[in-house]
Nucleic acid binder design. Structure first.
Lengths: 344, 344
DNA sequence: ATTATCCATGCAATCGATTGCGTATTTTCC
DNA sequence: GGAAAATACGCAATCGATTGCATGGATAAT
């Protein structure tokens, strides 16, 4: 039991060095008007005494908390937790804290928790939208007050914001074309809510690939789900397989539902990929676990997180204007596994 | 563009009501010495003006940040992200923020990041230890300064701390006995680092079950791995299957390695569960995805998180002494699936 | 009626760091 | 040598909420 020792403050250092607290503060912050020797002396003593800046006091004065807020749908999803992991790492390395909030995919909660984040004076905000979010006014609170907002993955469909995403159109295009290359002629698509641009773009990419390759676009094979979870995956698979003219391929906008598709097809005795080729999206760990292994589109989660916080920090540094618009687009890659490999 | 409006402070409210800021502060905090009418008037005006307490100012004064720190190995693991999800929810409901830090299972990083958490004046700390952590002195920084520390899941082997965990001994005992019930006579065990009590307890439970049922304990079938990841799982499975007298069952201390065991056995043409019955631990989502579905021990992640933060909050409220010791033990359940079901 | 108790509120210091403004000293450059 | 510019530092206010101490009035107890 060492007993509590109270924290060292700049006043302690100032007193010991016979300078003013202002000088200590400026020295520690490398202010131009402080001499070299003074800076060195201050920093050395700070080190010796184990001085730790009181970030709370600093935050109060500057009205900046050095904390990055993150708003996501659910923490416990492979893609999201990897995204956060990337953000957390970069944040810590730049001396920032990270606080996390979940919307559980409910716009209402997103709004409320956003208010709470605002109240805690976060320095910047990184958001992946709730599935149901269609209007973005609750973000004005931040942008109007000069707080950087960076959207990642599930980004709004408006233009004047900062975004980090992948090229969903291309990714979907390539995934669909891959199925066509493998000989599929009737390809179903399970997507998410169309007002979410990622799902709209995946749908568009899918349709473009069909058209380019002269494959008929059959609306009965295109289903936009509301949550695209495991249960929905089963239901949708059943739905398309019961059609008079069932598909021989499925491009699914996430892996969770694609896995359900595999499971349902297997249960019905349908051979994968011979009778039904399947490709998902995200390249979640389950892709390698399921039998047959699931082809997917690799989604660079950690890198997206890093890119997002990099944008946010650049805005904090003033290198990018908060009210401008930037866009970072990361590469994806179709990962072919047995669930879609009919040739070679 | 609404333009920035500055925040409402207690001074604004005080001025408008012709009372002092002290009164406003006390009224909002339901201080006993403020009259009913005054309280009502203050609260109503606060509501009307959209007053939001400046938690930073409050933190500076009280030296409590209303922030709960979490230290875990990796965010992006199913069990951990669910744990965090549980903590985050309960924290938010009680008006606390959550900040997260990762140790990546490295004691060195755990120590450094813990210091950073301390510097940011967290009100309480919830920890699941890094795999390699064997000494716990870096937590004294918190306990000596009256900051509640609650350990969860990967808890230290010392007594005078607050813990939330499951009964690993019993869980392992039941899982092992389940394999015995299914006719296994040579059961291997893949565990983690023995200095982590959860792994030591699972080992003990396993051995106790063997002994109780008069099954020989063969040390060559018991392997304590250092990280128990997918690669190790493959390696360990290979190792035991190449023994002169290979096992007919495996009790694995996590699901990741158990899945590897299934994959390796399948590759070698070994039938599961007939020739080799397998049970894992955690009941991760992959258990239902892998073929055959993996039996496991259900680990109530969200509930553990909730229990942990409940303990922490109770300590903050002074209901439990910080320097006492408490222990919450949650129930587990063996979930039987095809990977271990030889009968019935 | 007098003292003790409770109620209701204000004053002003405090938490620790930041920063605009002012002053003093030194350097630079014609 | 003298003015301008750069360097070096201190003073004191400030950020917004909290809280120990003091005060004045009302109520209760003796």
């Amino acid at each position: 039991m060492e007993g509590k020792k109270k924290d060292v403050t700049i006043y302690d250092l100032a007193h010991e060095l016979n300078v003013s607290p202002s000088t200590v503060s400026r020295a520690l912050n490398d202010h131009y008007s402080i001499g070299k020797k003074t800076k060195k002396a201050v920093k050395q003593l700070a080190e010796e005494r184990g001085y730790r800046p009181n970030t709370i006091a600093s935050s109060l004065r500057t009205n900046r908390s050095n904390t990055i807020g993150i708003m996501v749908s659910w923490i416990n999803r492979p893609f999201i937790s990897s995204l956060i992991s990337g953000i957390e790492k970069a944040a810590r390395e730049s001396g920032h804290q990270v606080i996390i909030s979940q919307s559980y995919d409910k716009p209402e909660l997103e709004k409320d928790n956003l208010q709470a984040l605002y109240d805690s004076r976060i320095s910047a905000l990184i958001v992946s939208l709730a599935m149901g979010t269609t209007d973005y006014q609750h973000f004005d609170l931040f942008t109007n007050n000069g707080i950087p907002v960076v959207f990642v993955d599930r980004i709004p469909s408006i233009h004047d914001v900062h975004k980090v995403h992948i090229n969903n159109f291309n990714a979907a295009f390539e995934a669909t074309e891959h199925l066509i290359d493998q000989g599929c002629t009737r390809i179903a698509h399970f997507g998410g809510a169309r007002h979410q641009s990622i799902y709209e773009d995946r749908r568009s990419g899918y349709i473009a690939a069909l058209k380019k390759n002269n494959v008929d676009v059959d609306e009965s094979l295109i289903i936009q789900a509301t949550s695209l979870n495991a249960e929905e995956g089963l239901r949708l698979t059943e739905q398309v397989l019961e059609l008079e003219n069932p598909p021989d391929g499925i491009f699914c906008a996430n892996d969770t539902a694609a896995v359900s598709a595999i499971q349902y097809a297997k249960k019905m005795g349908i051979r994968i990929p011979e009778e039904l080729a399947i490709i998902g999206f995200n390249n979640d760990p389950i892709c390698e676990i399921i039998d047959p292994p699931l082809s997917s589109v690799d989604h660079p989660a950690v890198e997206m997180g890093e890119a997002a916080i990099k944008q946010a920090l650049a805005m904090l540094e003033g290198e990018i204007a908060t009210d401008s618009a930037t866009r970072v687009t990361l590469d994806t890659q179709v990962v072919v596994r047995a669930s879609s490999l009919r040739k070679g």
